[in-house]
């Protein structure tokens, strides 16, 4: 018990003993603030649940998600040991939804890892350097921003060929411009500040100022925005899957599953509804999480 009190006191202490402890203390204070928001906590639990399910998927599935059994096709939930029923090929829907979590997480993580850094670098460079660099980079951003993202993604996939990797690349290429805009706006508010001037007087080069002084200040609002966008990314990926341009059969991807199930929607509602529910719950969770993060990381934007 005293151990718990001990580390809490250390995290909240005003005199941290090392840089790591200071950073941890800062995180802990953020967590205390985040924790107070019930809905955000629900979002976090669901997102963490998704990660756990994706990691443990091979051990969680009750049936082989790819094994067809035409004798048991379109079984309702609960029938013959299939908790959530079976699809038109007699595959277990629960197992496919569980495996599908991997695909969803893979898409989301890859898009975030590609789009956010591109947006961050383009936006901070444009905002800090200004002038011609700003004009060129931001017009380029505008060009990407001007296309409806799903249409642009469709075009990319059409050019590159359908498949999950190409869907990811297409979504990433269409989702970085808003991040660039946010990073630029943040950069413009700090580039004339005294602490940047101080770094200049110390002789810091442009790259150093960008990476060590400007970017850390853009990351929090970017994190919030990326989290809020996750829902949109999942929906776009599902949309591509639904249109047959994302994950290809027999891969268990939620959007493709909804697409395949829509033919039976009136008589066997569960085939399309259950993967649809999964999409809905995970998108909602990312939105709730993003709202909670915004309150902690970006107080200016909070309600």
């Amino acid at each position: 018990m005293s151990g718990v009190v001990g580390w809490r006191a250390r995290l909240l202490s005003d005199t941290p003993a090392s840089g790591r402890e200071a950073a941890l203390g800062r995180l802990y204070r953020g967590w205390l603030q985040f924790k107070a928001n019930r809905l955000a906590l629900v979002g976090l639990v669901i997102v963490l649940g998704l990660v756990v399910v994706a990691l443990l998927a091979p051990w969680l599935v009750t049936h082989d998600p790819y094994r067809q059994n035409l004798a048991q096709r379109l079984l309702p939930p609960g029938a013959m040991g299939h908790l959530l029923g079976t699809d038109e090929f007699g595959r277990d829907i629960l197992s496919r939804v569980i495996i599908g979590a991997r695909v969803t997480l893979y898409i989301v993580a890859l898009v975030a890892l590609i789009a956010a850094p591109i947006g961050l670098i383009v936006g901070t460079a444009a905002g800090y350097l200004g002038g011609a660099v700003d004009a060129v980079l931001m017009r380029l951003t505008d060009v990407f921003l001007a296309f409806p993202s799903l249409i642009l993604a469709l075009a990319f996939v059409a050019a590159l060929g359908p498949g999950i990797e190409n869907a990811v690349i297409a979504i990433a290429l269409t989702s970085w411009p808003p991040y660039a805009r946010i990073a630029r706006a943040e950069t413009l508010t700090v580039r004339k500040s005294d602490f940047i001037a101080a770094a200049q007087i110390q002789g810091a080069g442009t790259a150093r100022i960008l990476f060590r002084h400007v970017m850390p200040l853009c990351i929090s609002s970017l994190t919030v925005r990326v989290t809020l966008d996750m829902a949109g990314i999942i929906l776009t990926a599902a949309g591509l899957g639904f249109l047959g341009l994302g994950a290809q059969p027999p891969m268990a991807e939620w959007g493709a599953m909804v697409s395949a199930g829509r033919r039976y929607i009136l008589d066997q509602w569960w085939v399309a509804t259950i993967p649809g529910l999964a999409i809905f719950v995970v998108s909602l969770a990312f939105n709730l999480l993003g709202d909670g993060l915004r309150d902690v990381l970006d107080p200016r934007q909070a309600r």
Partner: peptide, 11 residues
Amino acid sequence: ASLHPRHTVDR
């Protein structure tokens, strides 16, 4: 305004 808000004194 003259100290970086995300840097510790040490940094």
